[in-house]
Design a protein around this nucleic acid. Sequence first.
DNA 1: GAAATGACGCGTT
DNA 2: GAACGCGCCATTT
Length: 115
Amino acid sequence: MKALSAAELDRLILDATRAIPFGGLRSYGSLARQLGLPRGARRVARALAGNQDPDLPWHRVLRAGARIAFPPGSAGFAEQRRRLIAEGHRFVGARVIAVHSDADALDAALWSPDR
DNA sequence: GAAATGACGCGTT
DNA sequence: GAACGCGCCATTT
């Protein structure tokens, strides 16, 4: 098994993020595990922080418990909340409530963020 | 090379 | 359920 360079890993993380469908939600930890990084949540966050793709749906990536990772009140927090609401989601404080009826998002609706 | 930092996660209190 | 603390990981100071 070839070891992945930091840049390659970043690319994989960004690709996995792009694969999240409209209305879908994933957590940093879940995303990390999918890529074989059991404790790589922070690594995923690092990759998103350095992304340059304006079309990257980074707002669909949440912290455990479906909470926004940015500090409440920060610009990032407001931006992410705005984008998620634009996709039909609802909020209770920093917590995101997935509200979708199509089968594609059923996954996200039932998805438990920390598992 | 040690200490601090951050878009994290989880058990405790 | 909120606040806190500690562990994890890579980067930066």
